[in-house]
Design a protein around this nucleic acid. Sequence first.
RNA 1: GCCGGUGUGGCGGAACUGGCAGACGCGCUUGACUCAAAAUCAAGUUCUCGCAAGGGAGUGGGGGUUCGAGUCCCUUCACCGGCACCA
Length: 824
Amino acid sequence: MARPYEPASLEQKWQKRWKEEQQHKTREDHAKPKFYCLEQFPYPSGRLHMGHMRVYSIGDIIARLKRMKGYQVLHPMGWDAFGLPAENAAVKYGAAPSKWTYENIAYMKQQLERVGFSFDWSREVTTCSPEYYKWTQWLFLTFYERGLAYRKKASVNWCPECSTVLANEQVIDGLCWRCDSEVTKKDLEQWFFRITDYAERLLKDLDNLPGWPEKVRTMQRNWIGKSEGANITFTIPELDDEPVNVFTTRPDTLYGVTYMVLAPEHPLVPRLIEGKPQAAEVRDFMERMKKESDIARTSADAEKVGYFTGAYAKHPLTGDQIPIWVANYVLLDYGTGAVMGVPAHDERDFAFARKYNLPIKAVINPLDENFLVEEIGVDSPYTDDGTLIHSGPFDGLPNREAIKAIADHLQKLGKGGPAVSYRLRDWLVSRQRYWGAPIPIIYCDNCGIVPVPKDQLPVLLPEDVVIDGKRNPLTTSESFVSTTCPACGGKARRETDTMDTFIDSSWYYLRYTDAANDQLPFDKEKVDKWLQVDEYIGGVEHAILHLLYSRFFTKVLYDAGMLSYEEPFRSLLTQGMVLKDGAKMSKSKGNVVSPDEMIEKYGADTVRLFILFAAPPERDLDWTDTGVEGSHRFLHRVWRFVEGNAALFKGDVPAPRPDQSAAAKELYRMTHFATKKVTEDIGERYTFNTAISTIMEMVNKMYAYPEDADRGTLAFAIERLLLLMAPITPHIAEELWEMIGKTESVHKQSWPDYDPAALVQDEVEIVIQINGKVRDKLIVPNGLSKDELAALVADHERTKALVQDKTVRKVIAVPGKLVNLVVG
RNA sequence: GCCGGUGUGGCGGAACUGGCAGACGCGCUUGACUCAAAAUCAAGUUCUCGCAAGGGAGUGGGGGUUCGAGUCCCUUCACCGGCACCA
């Protein structure tokens, strides 16, 4: 009586047993090589979605393989548990954010266990627990001690919907990354991390990350946005030669400057316009610019608007009078907030000069002799290379050389010099929200800003707060706000902002290495043992945000001597989205497929198999019901075959005798080939889809295996099949492994090797080509040399017929592959 | 505009090092089993001409290198993503 495949009961049976045996606990064994396999930890939103299923399926297949290959594997899991949804839930349902969060964690943890992911839960990390955020605060203070955390008043991004400020990285196309509302500007005093100090290292070290996708490295390079050029100091005679710096990437065009433009918010503007007839309209313009959002103002097709201030600057080399303008297209926080205008050689300057009738002066002579210098500035600016003209002592110099020559010359004169500018801004880390780690800072009227002493951490989140989505909740807790100054003992008040949740997730991968440490965030020896993360798997939506911040954190902690690596993630795998009907799953589209329902219907193994089989990991995956059915069908097929042949394993199992028949030899070869292919595809190439397709081919061969062929070879193939399936579909592999009489878990077995000799075929099919076109195929003994092959083909009747009376000019023979006859 | 990525059957995808394009799966067609259906097993399935044997075309388009190109080079188009009045 055949026993049917019943995933629901057998999966729970094994999950229970694995848990009892603590099978997924990290075994620290210094004799073995280590492997740190990490997937981005989830936000406890309530339910797992298919995106979660995908990341964790990918991580689990890798971790399970590495364990079987004899590595000590760190494969931890935790919760990115601070954040706004918990607060929104508090406003909506009146539940405390902590209650909401911990209930979600409990539910999602149970879901993850139901899929059979091999996480080491003994190292579980929850960022909203005081045991964790104590160290987040500790690290904030470390940053503060190192001068990397500072407070300043600035025009910052403000999300009215979330009632909080946002970092630049969290503003996507002018909208809030969380809620998509339009972000406005506000002048506020806020905490920043000095990530710009690390701009150059963050940029340069991207070159040392060959294991990262080019796409992600490019995105980070673009975000950091390095420009090389020069700072040039103009002076303003009417303000006692007050200096004003401009940044330019084209110092070679310095002699072509015909005007200068300042950002409307530039601090010099009020002094420049004082007493001038233009003062009123410039002031009016400045007011208008203040109100306009950044996107509207800086979009490429926005009209360029400018006003003459009435003031002039002095050119640093020629001494010419340069009119000073203000315009919407100049931004205060990029470069120096001031630019020089060279309309002859810059598209934007040209358009501006045309509009306001400013002079255009050509200083680069095109190398193209057909291009007349006189044409410059007539219809369009000339922005390519050339030699300098009208540039005093630099005339005749190729402009590329002039860039350096002029910058160096200015430096000698003390009027500027080579300079680099980055697009990257400092990281705004304070949030006017409740559900985050409190910033451990105290304000004292006598002592000013006083950090909370590290031995007084954690600064606990108070519970007597009002969360109404309107006020900063911590300001409503009197018991929290009023405190004493750690320095002078006088009355003081606490900082009421909390930290950006991206700080929590910037170091969680370090905490996993030493999750229970109550003396330090982590022990140096332990973190050094496990770092770097060997494979980090997550969504590309964090390409800039989380991945840049984590790199920054690692570098700062490296500088602080807390760890020995400057880069946290050796290799990065960015998995694609899970789509349904060509669109991202979303409630509003009504195309959400629930993992719970799928597991209920087919079992976790089927869901894992389908996710890994349907597409390579980096690509988007289209969820199809028929595809899932197919994966489920395959597991049934495996089950039936193994179950139907389980009797083979009663008593003494015969040894494989592949020499008994061609069929036996072929199955034996296939088994070794599959071992090789699956090992490489899962362990090195991360193409799980092709690993699975090879296993399917192997099963097809097993079905076609003759009844009377060698049983030992078949037994060998069955045993091997289960080992190869173990990382992919761990439950069914375990159950069938037990069924064939094994007493120790399949997951504790050593990953099988393959025998290269077994891969060699006696006979191979070669292709006969005439002039590169396939004309015939021929079975020949393996291992023939080029000459033997050519001779054999020359003798082949059909080849003779094809060649007929034509001359064979050349014969190309590739052993084991083909023979190509060039005839004519 | 700059940078990066992707283009292969009806669909998801394979071809890793220049060597039989379309593995594996989905879908579809046919057969076996069945009173029948489902399930299962077996065969077929790029397009096109042909009864067939056998031709021809074919990896977004055009060109090139090579005995041989999905793969390398040049060029061009489309789509996706990042940056963008960034000085």
